[in-house]
Design a protein around this nucleic acid. Structure first.
Length: 726
DNA sequence: CCCGTCGGTTTTTTT
DNA sequence: AACCGACGGG
């Protein structure tokens, strides 16, 4: 790493006043710019740390920023408003006593549970047209665009939307009855607060002398509005981002926020950081050649003074097992630290984990089932959440009968009925158990038992939080319930609960005024990537391409570089190839010294295997950067890639974007695939079709092979050969 | 009310 | 292949 700021970095750091947009290419030292800028404000301009706000997307990025600032100025960064959009907004809402300063933050899982209840109550429980998933997604994207149910109602044109708006409105009503906010609310509510209360709004506007925003390309409309409001008084706003690394449009991020920053702030100064300090010249050239294909981007090109380095390996493997074995072999040969493996979907991690475990290679996996989303953790947290906020119906429903207390669905229905009719929350209904007329004595006793037990919990002293939590885990019977569970993985679950209690202790140790509320808030806004140690340990790190943004490793493997997987193609909504290309670009530019791209001849998805086509992205990378390695032993002729010829030179030229029909005539195909047909599969050898399902390109065949294994394959990809009867 | 089994669905990405 | 919810017997 260089020790002095380069000319462009200086320009960004020394632009003291007014709006500033920094295009910061991958590895160009953007965190360096932000931290130096903040340090300079404090030192050169004597700005109080309290008047600086820096917003990030992950806690990890925020923490890194704090550490680096403290290293620069040797002054505690405490008191600075540095944190994620969500955590800073939660902080504002608590300060301003929204819901009296006591509210619960619902995660996606909680949202879906709530929506499921609502759908059931509206008689849409098993409607095909409304699934909790879809509805959650729609609501989230409306909130991202600051659209309330009332606003949306005006735009309704059909009965489907009419019904949807009823669900949305009811969702809002119940959230508020439970004193709960979802992730999107945290930002939305701050904006509402500011718009509805001039005094409060001006207080923050006046206070924030400098506003800095990291990863600006990932902001959505709500975040953009928030930034605009916060910066409007002093107009000292610095946004740092890279349109080439925008990979969250599906979550409402709007790339126009960065592309059109100059429209919002016409006097904006613009600085481009294009010198890359991270990667070898070869890796950078390869990445540049790929991203250049995108149309919707600001023209720029990264350069470096680093050495050329090794070529980028393009490895052809048989299938995911072979892929994992190849990586395991490579990882073994090197000295561990600084190796990462990326994949497009979490499901791909399974085969990798297996290979690493079998080869005794230590690995750390980021993402997937996150710690705080594990069932046992959510159960314990639900107890704590309900203690803090008894109005939290979702948490009550979660634990009232865990462990079993004889409170089943029938009893719950009665509780819900009573609560609804009396306009109360579920916990109040529990407290009024004597008036639950629809219950037997035995059922009423069960409810009373829970009430008494729980009211005890509420009265436990909270001066020692760790003690408090472990007492509740024990006295609720949850610990015993776990221990006696017949399910697999009991040990791991107990361990997780233990880890949670440790987390409470750690929270207390580093927080001056530790409260249960504070712990819960921190926990609900944390993600796995936040807890990732700075890849110092001698392990391989596994994660999705999305999670990799902002990180760097000496050696990077990008797996599954195949058409349909990267770029990922799903069958329903529109696919965004440019965003997929950016995702690939993000992955590639994480590598410092060595980059390895892998694609397989066969890939299983949803449990069945099919033939894979090399990603069209591979054709777009300058071939002089690549070294091709065939790890299949030449057993498989490679399929032509989707956009033009094979990466290995085989196959015929096709036009970009042209879809390759693997079979020109499907009706002919269908007629030949039938039960009893003997076939030959290039991998698994001879076999016989047991059954056929689906049509045309969706047709699947279940095949029994000679080695007695039964597999389901997509006919379109499987390249089966017919074996005639003798 | 509890527990086991079956069938359908799932996997894109996350604050 | 794995997870979830619906269903039915104990």
């Amino acid at each position: 790493m260089h020790n002095v700021l380069n000319e462009k970095q200086r320009e960004a750091v020394y632009t003291d006043a007014g709006p500033l947009l920094v295009f910061a290419g991958a590895g160009s030292g953007k965190t360096r710019v932000i931290t130096h800028k903040i340090a300079r404000m404090i030192f050169e301009h004597n700005v109080s740390p309290y008047r600086i706000m820096a917003l990030t997307f992950t806690n990890k990025a925020a923490r890194e920023m704090v550490e680096r600032i403290e290293n620069l100025v040797h002054v505690s960064a405490k008191g600075m408003w540095i944190g994620t959009f969500h955590s800073q907004c939660a902080r504002i809402l608590r300060r301003e006593k929204v819901y009296g300063g006591v509210f619960t933050i619902y995660d996606t899982d909680d949202q879906k549970k709530l929506l499921k209840n609502i759908l059931a109550d509206l008689g849409l429980g098993d409607s095909k047209r409304f699934s909790p998933n879809d509805v959650q997604h729609r609501i989230s994207s409306l909130k991202n665009r600051l659209i309330t149910p009332v606003m949306f109602r005006d735009a309704v044109t059909n009965t489907f939307d009419e019904l949807f708006v009823r669900i949305y409105a009811e969702y809002e009503r119940r959230l508020s009855a439970s004193q709960a906010l979802d992730f999107d609310d945290l930002i939305f509510r701050v904006i509402e607060l500011f718009k509805g209360n001039n005094e409060v709004c001006e207080k923050y506007q006046e206070n924030i002398l400098y506003l800095l925003v990291d990863e600006y390309q990932d902001t959505n409309l709500a975040q953009y509005e928030l930034i605009k409001i916060l910066a409007s008084r002093h107009r000292n706003i610095t946004v740092v981002g890279d349109d080439d690394q925008a990979i969250y449009s599906w979550r409402g991020a709007d790339i126009r926020n960065i592309l059109e920053f100059e429209k919002t702030f016409p006097d904006a100064h613009i600085v481009r950081l294009e010198q890359n300090y991270r990667s070898t010249k070869t890796i950078l050239d390869a990445s540049n050649s790929l991203i250049r294909r995108n149309k919707e981007r600001k023209e720029k090109s990264l350069w470096t003074e680093n050495e050329g380095g090794e070529k980028v390996d393009l490895v052809y493997v048989v299938d995911e097992r072979d892929e994992a074995a190849y990586i395991a072999r490579q990882a073994q040969g090197s000295d561990g630290p600084g190796t990462a493996v990326f994949y497009r979907t979490n499901a791909q991690s399974r085969s990798l984990e297996e290979a690493f475990r079998n080869n005794g290679i230590p690995y750390v996996i980021v993402g997937g089932l996150r710690f705080y989303e594990r069932k046992e953790i959510k159960d314990v947290l639900a107890y704590l959440r309900l203690i803090v906020n008894p109005a939290d119906d979702i948490s009550l429903e979660r634990i009232i009968n865990v462990p079993r207390r004889g409170i089943g669905e029938k009893t719950m229905d009665e509780l819900r009925r009573y609560a609804r009719e009396n306009n109360q929350v579920l916990f109040q209904a529990v407290q009024n158990y004597g008036r639950l007329t629809g219950l037997t004595q035995r059922e009423r006793d069960a409810v009373a038992g829970f009430k008494n037990r729980f009211e005890d919990f509420q009265a436990y002293p909270r001066d020692d939080l760790k003690r408090f939590v472990s007492d509740i885990v024990r006295d609720s019977g949850y610990l015993q319930f776990l221990e006696q569970s017949s399910e697999e993985g009991v040990a791991e679950r107990l361990e997780n609960v233990g880890e949670l209690i440790t987390a409470v202790q750690e929270y207390c140790d580093r927080t001056p005024e530790a409260t249960l509320e504070g712990f819960l808030e921190e926990v609900s806004l944390i993600t796995d990537i936040d807890t990732l140690a700075d890849n110092g340990g001698s392990h391989v790190t596994l994660m999705t391409l999305h999670s990799s943004k902002g990180l760097e490793f000496d050696r990077v493997f990008v797996t599954g570089v195949e058409e349909g997987l990267l770029p990922l193609i799903r069958d329903n909504d529109e696919n965004d190839t440019e965003e997929e290309r950016r995702l690939m670009y993000v992955g590639m530019t994480r590598a410092r010294k060595k980059l390895c791209l892998i694609h397989a001849a066969f890939r299983s998805r949803y449990g069945s295997s099919s033939q894979a086509v090399p990603s069209s992205f591979l054709d777009e990378i300058s071939s002089e950067c690549l070294r091709k390695i065939d790890n299949t032993g030449g057993r498989f002729r490679e399929l032509a890639s989707a956009s033009g010829g094979s990466a290995y030179g085989a196959g015929h030229k096709r036009h970009p974007g042209e879809v390759i029909p693997l079979f020109e005539n499907f009706s002919q195909v269908e007629s030949t695939y039938r039960k009893g047909q003997k076939i030959y599969h290039p991998i698994w050898g001879p076999g016989m079709i047991l059954s056929v399902s689906g049509f045309n390109e969706n047709m699947k065949a279940e095949i029994k092979f000679q080695n007695a294994s039964i597999k389901k394959v997509m006919v379109k990809y499987a390249r089966l050969e017919f074996v005639g009867d003798e």
